[in-house]
């Protein structure tokens, strides 16, 4: 009886092996192979650089106000 259970369990495990081997994790490999991912990087970098340029601009503006001799 125990033997039967163990073997059927092992058999059941065997049945999982091909399923696990087949399960490939899908990634955006096509996007990488045709280079479209660089478009995404370019867009994000543009936004980032724009934001930082704006930050530096505000920073300079506040520095100017601080230096300004007014009461």
């Amino acid at each position: 009886m125990v033997k039967k259970i163990v073997f059927s369990f092992l058999f059941a495990c065997l049945a999982f092996i091909p399923a696990m081997a087949q399960e490939k994790v899908e990634m955006a490999d096509v996007m990488r192979s045709n280079g479209k991912i660089y478009v995404v990087v370019a867009v994000c970098l543009t936004i980032l650089l724009g934001l930082f340029a704006y930050m530096f601009y505000i920073d300079r503006k506040i520095s100017k106000i601080e230096k300004h001799k007014s009461h």
Binding site: I37, V40, V41, C44, L45, L48, L49
Partner: peptide
Amino acid sequence: LIYTIIGGF
């Protein structure tokens, strides 16, 4: 952050 975007993607 530039590295984050380039390396991250």
